[in-house]
Amino acid sequence: MSESPFHHLMPLCQLPARATGRICELTGDSEFCQRIREMGFGESVYVTKIAGNGTILCQLNGTRIGLSHDAARQILVERVGSR
């Protein structure tokens, strides 16, 4: 069964473990947005949350990145499936 294309946006921190999301919006201040864009967290990029409720571990383009909870809260994603 195919995934529905109409998922609600959710912060990356709320994405379940092992689920993948597509980054739709960065809501932090411009300094933060610019930094994470340069690290590859651009809009439309796919990110998989690996673990964590407080500090979270995610995978992006094959790289693991640890993000503070507040940082992950500012990355809005659309869930697209599980890894």
Binding site: G28, M39, T55, R64, I65, G66, D70
Partner: peptide
């Protein structure tokens, strides 16, 4: 403010 951590975790 507490800074936000964005850190790469190597394999």
């Amino acid at each position: 403010k507490p800074p936000l951590m964005i850190m790469e975790l190597p394999p």
